[in-house]
């Protein structure tokens, strides 16, 4: 059983079900507070009947700095998914999908053009999950990650920049087909 609502700072005292999981990163307090301070509607949690946090999503709204507005890599006003996690015991219930949908609603409410996120190219499960939600690969960011998730001999891994258009993008101008083949460097990504 779960409730979905905005994050509150005291939720940090109930993060253990999510954050003790080896695949969930724990950040400094300032990082969580920055998201809660700037984009409170894009920081959503799922809690269980005892108030334990069993999933959360952190997102932000931004555009590329003005100075890049004539660059081909310029990103207009959009929402970005920074982190999404679901506690092991609460998986297979669609909580990740529901949290993402909540963030998409908030992105629409904030007049964003699209929602984007980065995912390792080898993370087939996550890629399939996002594709099932309407996301598509917009571009491949070469050597975006400083390590490789499956091959310890490699010291980098590419990322897919995946996008889903928001309601504002009626003409679907901010997505493209075959984005996998559109390669950019990490410095082209802000």
């Amino acid at each position: 059983m779960a409730n979905f609502r905005r994050f509150r700072p005291d939720d940090l005292n109930k993060f253990s079900k999510c954050n003790l999981d080896q695949y969930t990163e724990t950040y400094e307090l300032g990082f969580y507070m920055q998201y809660h301070a700037k984009w409170p509607s894009l920081f959503q949690v799922a809690e269980d009947q005892d108030g334990n946090i069993i999933g959360y999503i952190m997102g932000k709204l931004e555009s590329s700095p003005e100075v890049y507005q004539y660059s081909e890599h310029y990103l207009p006003w959009h929402a970005h998914i920074t982190a999404v996690t679901v506690a092991p015991e609460a998986r297979r219930l669609g909580i990740g999908r529901l949290l993402t949908q909540h963030l998409e609603v908030a992105a629409d409410a904030n007049n964003a053009w699209f929602v984007d996120l980065f995912v390792r190219v080898t993370n087939d499960k996550a890629i399939a999950f996002y594709k099932s939600m309407g996301y598509s690969v917009f571009r491949t960011v070469k050597d975006y990650y400083g390590d490789h998730s499956t091959d310890p001999t490699l010291n980098s891994e590419d990322a897919y920049d995946m996008r889903k258009p928001c309601k504002r993008d009626v003409k679907l101008e901010h997505i493209r087909e075959n984005g996998e083949k559109f390669e950019v460097n990490p410095e082209d990504v802000w």
Binding site: R8, P9, D10, L12, L29, G30, M33, Q34, H36, A37, K38, W39, P40
Partner: peptide
């Protein structure tokens, strides 16, 4: 001060200001 409190002021997240202060 509460961490990142100015971010909440500058973006007008008033309920966050109250939550962050309490935390």
């Amino acid at each position: 001060c509460p961490m990142r409190i100015w971010d909440a002021f500058s973006t007008g997240s008033y309920s966050s200001i109250l939550d962050m202060t309490e935390y």
